[in-house]
Design a binder for these strands. Structure first.
Length: 116
DNA sequence: CCATTGACCGGCT
DNA sequence: TAGCCGGCCAATG
């Protein structure tokens, strides 16, 4: 496996670890995945996901609780739908981090996905 | 090798 | 709250 693939594995592993009803930021996922300052790489990974993926990409948002997709896109609307379905309220393209930010517990932090 | 391009971030005004 | 701005970093041509 190339280093690039390993990184992607860890990133997607962390994305998958975000529980329903909460959200995480790109930067947060990057840190947890052991890719400091890798927010853009997280975005890249998500943008490459196939349409039918099981990975909960909709729970990943930009810093400050902002949705990062183009507001006029289908993907954006789908993200809003899925978040709403989990009880996460999206107003004016934002989510209240105060209420919905994911706070990994010790077990999850210790989990350190394979390869880290 | 250089320039451009992103599902980005964080400090500062 | 809202922008602006420099920094960031892998992929692409």
């Amino acid at each position: 496996m190339s280093e690039r693939d390993e990184r992607r594995r860890r990133i997607l592993g962390q994305v998958a670890a975000v529980p329903p009803g909460s959200v995480a930021t790109y930067g947060q996922i990057a840190e947890l995945a052991g890719v400091p300052r890798g927010a853009r790489q997280v975005g890249r990974c998500l943008s490459e996901l196939p349409p039918d993926t099981e990975i909960p990409w909709h729970r990943i948002i930009a810093a400050g609780g902002r949705l990062s997709l183009p507001p006029d896109s289908d993907a954006y609307r789908e993200q809003c739908r899925r978040l709403a379905a989990e009880g996460v309220t999206v107003l004016a393209g934002r989510v209240s981090m105060r209420r919905f930010a994911w706070e990994p517990d010790l077990d999850e932090l210790l989990w350190k996905p394979p390869g880290l």
